[in-house]
Design a binder for these strands. Structure first.
Lengths: 335, 335
DNA sequence: TCGTTTAATGGAATCGATTCCATGTATTAA
DNA sequence: TTAATACATGGAATCGATTCCATTAAACGA
């Protein structure tokens, strides 16, 4: 590959002049412009991004971390983020954790070794780890849709507590009192998704519902997980079945419904099922899902806006309102 | 951030020694090892990946190009590719074309400017463009699941022609003779997905089916597209409706079925619908999809194997057989 | 004992761009 | 006419690693 030196030589000018030409600096005569461009064309020259990055100490790369891209929610989120970042000339590097905090570590290390200028974390496994990075690089890290226990980390957060509470209320008011709760995280304070779980716990307390520990499921993500839960429920609960299931993912909901119906349990008549995300597919399910819609594109845009602003100091329009970031209960057939 | 120079200074050794230590070269005394490690710990040093990349002329980054990650097929494909590449210490950069060849151009330029060591193209818009890159960097480019008109480009290809032909035969043998054909590409030779289209054309010829030009749809990808097609079909075809629809995507199939049913057209009784991909969701659709399953993980592994081998010259196990790469008709309810 | 490997080490050169500095010429102001 | 700016340019220094080369010390063989 040709280098800037070769271009300079071929054009009969200094490397400085070539660089100035490439970067649209003034102070390059028309005469040399032509010669330089000719040399570039002739040698099919493209500047080495790596060299530029080293010298300029900036990569124009942003890392995005999600737990699993095969989850349509994350795929759509990534899509929105990429579109927005491309607008500003950034490339995007995605990584998936698959719930593995070692993968998260490797991802974050890219900040340290300057592979990326900043990161958007749409998933966090190890809060301590993330926090230590966020403190080391406060402008370079932003949490998206994750619990933020520490005010010192930039983040865009939605009110999942309220949305979950409202959805549970909706189920309750339909006469459901025996709940199954399924989360993608763990059923404790340190887990991601805890504000939803907290809402469930508070809700149960408020209505004095007894929580059956066998009806709490953790780290469930896929339709296959949902099917398994349904089987488990049917097998273990002898004569008592729940009357409502709150999932934290449409995928799980779909698996559940499929398996329940196969066992002649009607949704929503026998059991109501509440999804989460309003994934593209939700409306097309065998029983169209009642679910909580996340405002994906608004979330993505806001996160990118904030990150770019803090990264470059330059003014990036703030055009996302709190209204745009509202979660919304979508009522279909499953509950 | 600390640099290797500062480490050298703090440890009282030369930069060469530090570098040797970092890269596990022999010829570093136990004594200095300790001092260097102490300095590294104290200054929280991490080598700059950019500098290393510049010097070593290799990035350990691979680019993956897909048309749309929100398509579950591509999301799963990406997932499989990423898992495999991580195993070998590579990072992955994804880009989406969204059918825009300018995006493809930008993506490929990363090869030229050394942002990536190689690329996997699971989608191609502009064949000429891709070919010119493939010729400039023959070992660095591999096509995955795309038409390969030129034998000079590395690729892994499946027999979509045969799979499509077989699926059409299946539909035909059920008594369907009036076909709608829907592709994600264009209905011509230059388009991606043409071997499927060719199979359809040959099939029609063989059975002397008349092709209704109003029943050919191009560049359709989403469930919304499917719904629109269904509406279009119903509105325009007065008293004649097709009896079978061959789609090139489960997503489209799902939208179709939804809209047809809303109009009291029964699937598969009135119209049979054939999907493509066997996306995770296919089995959970309102009418579980009859579709053609793509061997995603085998495809991904094979592509990565070939690419890494041609990139590094080193031996990467070839453990994917042709049997693993077979497309398979999955019969459910929609046809 | 002396020549020959082997082990350790420091530091300059290098990868390919950008930017600062020095220098020179042309233009304008007074 | 002269001083002050503006315009153009070449090339060295720099970003932060790796690697080659030169040098020295220790171990080895005969």
């Amino acid at each position: 590959m040709a280098t800037i030196k070769e271009i300079a030589k071929k054009a009969g000018v200094g490397v400085g002049t070539v660089s100035r030409y490439l970067n649209d600096h003034p102070y390059v005569s028309e005469d040399k412009r032509k010669k330089i461009q000719a040399a570039i064309d002739e040698l099919d020259y493209t500047p080495s991004a790596i060299a530029t990055q080293l010298r300029s100490q900036s990569t124009k790369n942003i890392g995005v971390l999600v737990s699993r891209l095969a989850n349509p929610f994350f795929a759509e989120l990534f899509d929105a983020i990429e579109r927005k970042l491309n607008l500003y000339g950034y490339q995007v590097l995605v990584s998936q954790t698959h719930d593995d905090s070692a993968a998260e570590q490797r991802f974050l290390d890219q900040l340290k070794n300057h592979q990326v200028d900043g990161v958007i974390l749409a998933s966090v496994e190890n809060h301590e780890l993330v926090r230590s990075f966020a403190q080391a690089y406060p402008q370079k890290v932003i949490l998206l849709n994750e619990e933020n226990k520490y005010q010192d980390i930039q983040s865009v957060t939605l009110n999942h507590y309220q949305a979950t509470f409202d959805a549970l209320n909706y189920l309750f008011n339909q006469g459901n009192h025996h709940f199954v709760y399924i989360t993608g995280g763990n059923y404790d304070v340190k887990s991601h998704g805890y504000s939803r779980t907290k809402a469930f716990q508070d809700f149960a307390k408020q209505h004095q519902l007894s929580i059956n520990p066998d009806w709490i499921f953790s780290q469930k993500h896929t339709a296959a997980d949902g099917q398994e839960i349904a089987r488990n429920l049917i097998k273990n609960s002898k004569n008592t079945l729940p009357d409502a299931i709150f999932t934290n993912s449409d995928e799980v909901a779909i698996g559940l419904i499929d398996e329940l119906q196969k066992n002649n349990i009607s949704v929503p008549k026998d059991i109501a099922v509440m999804g989460y995300d309003d994934q593209p597919f939700a409306r097309f399910a065998a029983v169209p899902l009642t679910t909580i819609r996340q405002p994906i594109s608004a979330m993505a845009n806001k996160a990118v806006n904030i990150l770019l602003r803090s990264l470059t100091g330059q003014d990036v329009p703030e055009n996302i309102t709190n209204e745009d970031l509202k979660l919304k209960l979508i009522i279909r057939k499953s509950a």
